[in-house]
């Protein structure tokens, strides 16, 4: 029971960066811009947020810095794939390498710590105790769940849950959301009704950058106490897999990210698993989230239909 509570607790923690990255991809891909650069944007944001937080001592300024860095990369992706109609996959790959290289080059120059940032003391997101978590702790079943699993996370975790609802509302209940989805399905129709496809897509890409920025900032200043080289470790790609699994829907994205977060929690909690006399190697457990990502993509997604105009630059007819 204790182990289950611990697992669920770290599931929520580990799902959060995936969730923000997944929602970031959701906005971008719903508007017809594929983005495999989520990984790079998260990494850049993780570095910038940790660097700013280390220098200024303010985790909130760090968050802003991370968001700004991520948005800059988003805009590069936008210019390449919207303005110059380049290949969106290639642009995303370039952004991933750019972040992997720049974060190390710059952090070695700034902090001289071999590519990491200094450990953050107080400049991290503190763990919040939800109201009544003490008082409710003794209520059977729900009490433990509330006080040990739901309570005691950084504010970003709760922000993530709220962002799911907000994303659903924006995408499916506002005019802006309707247009954004239309731009990803049938840009001609949006253009005909007098709305700029270019502007809509750029807006989506910027939203994507902001959300990736939060994901990266949480990784470096919430979950960990500083930036380490390549600390995203494929989370951006797992978020993309979650997005496909969720079939580009915010609510399903939450469930998918919780699932992938749970897999990561298991692989961190159980470095060694013994089955009878046979000990499962820790390298296998480490690779488990990646293996299961493939299995889930291959076996359980069913037919996932991406937004129809996804990946295609829009050429206005003259």
């Amino acid at each position: 029971m204790d182990i289950l509570i611990q697992l669920l607790d770290s599931t929520l923690r580990l799902s959060t960066p995936l969730l923000f990255a997944c929602l970031a991809g959701l906005f971008s891909e719903r508007a017809g811009i594929f983005d495999i650069g989520l990984e790079g944007k998260m990494l850049m944001a993780a570095f910038m947020s940790a660097a700013v937080a280390a220098v200024t001592g303010s985790v909130w300024l760090g968050l802003l810095g991370g968001m700004a860095a991520s948005v800059v990369l988003s805009l590069i992706h936008g210019v390449a794939s919207i303005t110059f109609r380049g290949n969106q996959l290639i642009s995303g790959v370039a952004i991933n390498f750019l972040a992997a290289g720049l974060t190390v080059v710059v952090s070695k120059d700034w902090f001289k710590l071999g590519g990491d940032t200094p450990a953050l003391g107080d400049a991290r997101f503190p763990e919040l105790a939800l109201p009544f978590s003490e008082a409710l702790a003794d209520v059977p079943l729900i009490g433990r769940f509330y006080s040990d699993v739901l309570s005691g996370h950084a504010i970003i975790v709760y922000l993530g849950l709220a962002t799911v609802a907000l994303s659903w509302w924006v995408l499916f209940r506002t005019r802006f959301g309707l247009r954004l989805r239309a731009v990803g399905e049938n840009p001609e129709s949006v253009d005909t009704s007098g709305v700029s496809v270019i502007r809509m897509r750029f807006t989506a890409v910027v939203i994507c950058g902001v959300l990736c920025g939060i994901a990266g900032a949480y990784l470096a200043t919430g979950m960990s106490a500083g930036f380490r080289q390549n600390m995203t470790a494929g989370r951006g790609f797992i978020a993309l897999a979650a997005l496909i699994f969720a079939k580009w829907r915010p609510g399903m994205a939450l469930l998918a990210c919780l699932l992938f977060g749970f897999l990561q929690a298991v692989s961190i909690r159980f470095q060694t698993i013994e089955v009878g006399n046979f000990q499962i190697p820790s390298q296998f457990v480490e690779a488990l989230p990646y293996i299961l990502t493939v299995v889930i993509l291959a076996g359980f997604v069913g037919k996932a239909i991406p937004p129809r105009a996804g990946g295609e630059p829009y050429v206005k007819e003259r």
């Binding site: 390449a80 110059f84 380049g86 991933n96 390498f97 290289g101 080059v105 590519g115």
Partner: peptide, 25 residues
């Protein structure tokens, strides 16, 4: 020593970006 070898990764990323994605520019 100030310039780390990861600069090669940056150059590589920029080559991919300019030749692959920003080709039309």
């Amino acid at each position: 020593p100030e310039v780390s070898k990861e600069l090669v990764l940056v150059i590589q990323a920029l080559v991919i970006m300019f030749t692959g994605a920003l080709d039309n520019m």
